[in-house]
Amino acid sequence: MEISVEVNGVTHSSDVEPRTLLVHYVREAVGLTGTNIGCDTSSCGACTLHVNGEAVKSCTMLAVQADGQSVTTIEGLAPSDDEMHPMQTAFMECHALQCGYCTPGMVMASVSLLDENPSPTEAEVREGLEGNLCRCTGYHNIVKAVLSASGGGK
């Protein structure tokens, strides 16, 4: 099936099988491999990206469902090549990553969280990231980074 998806501001047209998952489409057809596949069962959140500005798990969405929609991946978050998104800066400054595998999904989920709740409490951050697992168990600094990006938690 012919689909057309805006990925990070650029429209891509591809012929995909209806059973193609969005995460496979983004990684293999569009060639953006920043979005990781973790559990592949909508539990871990490593594959989180934005569809029309909202965080979703791209292992649990078909590429054909994204036809005509706007997708943002971790590669499309920074405003330019030499400037990071404030959430990426916060993750760096708070040392909010260890092995880094969950990081793209964590960052995308965190940006969506602050879009919906710009000044969360620590408890709200922890609850808001319930869909993302860090197997290094580095949650404490991740929560600090999100609070820092929100201007709170200092």
Partner: peptide, 9 residues
């Protein structure tokens, strides 16, 4: 239900 990503869809 699930988590925020699940509740968006």
């Amino acid at each position: 239900v699930g988590d925020p990503q699940v509740r968006h869809r």
